[in-house]
Amino acid sequence: MNKLFSCLILLVILLSLPLATHARGANIEINTPAITKLKQSMQQRHGQLASHYASGAIGLTGDGLIAMRDANVLPLAQRQPVNALIAAENQDRNALYQEIASANNHPEWEKDIRATFSQRWISLAKSGWWYQAANGAWAKK
């Protein structure tokens, strides 16, 4: 009787297991303090970057980062500060991809996460912004 009871419990738990693991496997964790901090830092910086996306000075690269696309649209005095903004933004973006991968206990997912972000940055970019197409050439959205 005792054995039958424990077998029954085990059976019920085993049957419900796939449901629990499914829900777990299908989610991506993005609510960690490190990710929130990176998001805030990037959101703040975006105020300074937005006009440069629109002017075409900066473009979205194919590897989930940003780059100086055409320095000629900037006055000479602005080029250095904009370059510094780009470097800081790319540092945050690289850290973000790495953080998401490790927050999900899969550091090796970093490449997949970067590829996903690269696509989504470009998909959500406003029209008139520049991005790097698959062949590496700059294209205007």
Binding site: P18, N27, I28, I30, H46, N105, T116
Partner: peptide
């Protein structure tokens, strides 16, 4: 079970997560 299921990159969930972050960063 956890190991076998999580080995595969959850592309759809990652896309959703990326959209959420991008929408916040770009407001």
């Amino acid at each position: 079970a956890c190991v076998t299921i999580n080995i595969y990159f959850p592309a759809a969930a990652a896309e959703k997560a990326a959209d959420k972050i991008i929408e916040e960063v770009w407001q």
